[in-house]
Every structure is written in structure tokens, then in C-alpha cells.
């Protein structure tokens, strides 16, 4: 797959001196759902704001569908739809008027049939004449999505789409994202819900303190979920790991009486048995055993808190 968004060496320092992004490099593939994970204040919204034209970068370059977002901003922006985190709406506008406004703003000829289809798809049709202020939070968010899709974009940014949204609506949103992807729309969503990334994403990027820490296929990350850890508490303490055990991925912990062993339960199914056999051959007696597996959440948390 070719990349539809390409971010190269992107940096953002605000006038206040705060650096929100540093040397961000990222490629979004055409047609994928990409989840950008990161704690609050990591730079997710800043990154999206720059790509969508709301903020300016201090350095680096971004292209959307091959068009530079600064020099070719018209072509670039017309490809992109954005659903921001905040529910900013014009309280007195009707649903129909505000969605129609968005389409015009993005330079598309009026197309009432398309707007109708969109509103029906998002279960907003019976609210088309309602003023925005009359709508519930969930409906407002759906209107924001309708606005973002009103000009038939190829790329859709969803900034924290399910923050403060109830479980049912979250399921609906996920369903809608899948449908959009079927239609060929590339979706970039930011979230700090791991569950959402696990559920939706093809690839996951983790951002912290304005830097991309990793970008991986979700499946590859999930494979790390297969990695398990066995902690062996020994009767005696060891100075070093005996050379006979070198074939295993072992670490000595605490006072030397704990051996921690990382393994992949699916790849080498008998490694635990082999290790335990080796230990007993070496005359090392076992006091206790504990096994655990790392979740995506743990991977994420450890990445995000590294160096902190």
C-alpha cells in the first residue's frame, strides 16, 4: 500500500517556547485505520492540527495524497475531514444548515441527496431541522462527523472520537469507522483508550512528549501480548546466571534469588518445562513460581513512562 499522508521531520514549538512536537516522522497508508496512542499532552492534537491546517509547523513537511499541506493547501485540505475533540458547534444553526455549510466551505457543489444519505447513515435525518443546541452530546458528535464527511474526504481524522461517549454509541462509532474504511476512507484516530486501538486499528503509533516512540502493525504488537514472563523464586541466591542456562532469556532480579524468564508461549511451547528441568539438574531448588503476560496496556505504559 502507498502512503496517503507523509510526515517528515515535523517539529512544533509554540511562541511560549513549549515544544509540542519534535522530529515526527510518520507515514499513513492508504485505506488503513491508524490509531495514535498517547497520554494527555503528548502532542496528538497538535500533530492533527498541523496536518489539517489549524496550526503551523515550525519545521518539517507534511503531504496529504501527495500535496504539500502548506504550498498546496487547497488540494491537501480538500482531501481531509476532521472531527475535533471539542464539540464546537453553532448553537443556533440547524443540523441541515451546518452540514451544508461545511460542504460549501470545502469547495464542493451543493448535493442535497448526498447530505441526506449522510444524515440517514448517522441516524440524524429526523433531527435535520433541529438546532444544534437542542441535541444531546452524542448527537452533536455525530453531527461533527457528518460535517467532516460532508465534502466526501479521502482521509478522516477523528480526535478522541469516543471520549465521554457511552458504550452503545462507542460501538456505533466503531461500526461506522469500519463502514467508512470499506468505502476506502483512510482513518486516523487518536485515543488514550487502548481497547479502542485494539478493536479498531490496523496499525498503532505511540506518541509521548511530542515524539513518536513506535509505529507497528497492531498484529505485531498483539504478538507481544503472546510474550509471557515466568518468575522463579529460588531457595538460594545466585551471583550470576549459570552458563548452563545461557540458552534461555533470563534475568537475575532483586537479591539474586529471583530469576525472570521471558518467553513466547506460542512459539516455544516446551521452554518452561526445559528450564525447570535444567534448574533441577543444576540442583537449584524452587521456592515459588509466578507467570504473567504483558498486555498492550503494559507495553504502552512502560513505553510512555520510560525515562520518567
Amino acid at each position: 500500500m502507498t502512503s496517503i499522508i507523509s510526515v517528515a521531520g515535523l517539529g512544533k514549538t509554540y511562541d511560549s517556547g513549549f515544544t509540542a512536537l519534535r522530529d515526527v516522522n510518520l507515514d499513513i497508508k492508504r485505506g488503513e485505520i491508524f490509531a495514535l496512542l498517547g497520554p494527555n499532552g503528548a502532542g496528538k492534537t497538535t500533530l492533527i492540527s498541523i496536518i489539517c491546517g489549524i496550526s503551523r509547523q515550525t519545521e518539517g513537511r507534511v503531504t496529504a495524497d501527495g500535496f504539500d499541506i502548506v504550498n498546496d493547501y487547497r488540494a491537501a485540505r480538500s482531501k481531509i475531514g476532521l472531527v475535533p475533540q471539542e464539540l464546537s458547534t453553532d448553537a443556533f444553526e440547524s443540523v441541515w444548515a451546518t452540514v451544508t455549510f461545511s460542504r460549501g466551505l470545502f469547495g464542493k457543489a451543493p448535493n442535497p441527496e448526498y447530505i441526506e444519505k449522510l444524515l440517514r447513515q448517522l441516524s440524524l435525518w429526523d433531527k435535520k431541522d433541529a438546532q444544534m443546541r437542542e441535541l444531546s452530546g452524542g448527537m452533536k458528535r455525530r453531527v461533527m462527523i457528518a460535517k467532516a464527511l460532508s465534502h466526501e474526504p479521502e482521509i478522516l481524522f477523528l480526535d478522541e472520537p469516543t471520549a465521554g461517549v457511552d458504550v452503545e454509541l462507542r460501538r456505533d462509532m466503531w461500526e461506522m469507522m469500519r463502514e467508512l474504511r470499506e468505502q476506502g476512507v483512510t482513518i486516523i484516530l487518536t485515543t488514550h483508550y487502548i481497547e479502542e486501538a485494539e478493536e479498531m486499528a490496523d496499525r498503532i503509533g505511540v506518541i509521548r512528549k511530542g515524539q513518536i516512540l513506535l509505529v507497528e502493525e497492531k498484529q505485531a504488537l498483539m504478538d507481544k501480548l503472546g510474550s509471557k514472563q515466568l518468575t522463579v523464586h529460588l531457595q538460594q541466591t545466585l551471583e550470576a546466571i549459570p552458563s548452563e542456562l545461557s540458552e534461555f532469556d533470563l534475568h537475575l532480579e532483586q537479591d539474586g534469588s529471583y530469576l525472570s524468564f521471558s518467553y513466547d508461549s506460542r512459539q516455544d511451547g516446551d521452554s518452561v518445562a526445559r528450564l525447570l528441568r535444567k534448574l533441577s539438574e543444576l540442583g537449584l531448588e524452587i521456592r515459588d513460581l509466578n507467570s504473567s503476560e504483558s498486555s498492550l496496556e503494559e507495553i504502552f505504559v512502560s513505553l510512555v513512562h520510560e525515562e520518567n
Binding site: 489539517c52 491546517g53 489549524i54 493547501y73 487547497r74 488540494a75 491537501a76 485540505r77 480538500s78 481531509i80 476532521l82 475535533p84 471539542e86 464546537s88 458547534t89 453553532d90 448553537a91 461545511s102 466551505l105 470545502f106 469547495g107 460535517k147
Partner: peptide, 14 residues
């Protein structure tokens, strides 16, 4: 003030 400016800023308008 209301934040709806985001849409104008992200639109392909000069």
C-alpha cells in the same frame, strides 16, 4: 470564542 473556527482554518479557503 466558540471554537468553530477550526472548520474555516482546516478548509481549503484562502
Amino acid at each position: 470564542f466558540s471554537g468553530t473556527i477550526y472548520e474555516v482554518l482546516s478548509a481549503p479557503v484562502s
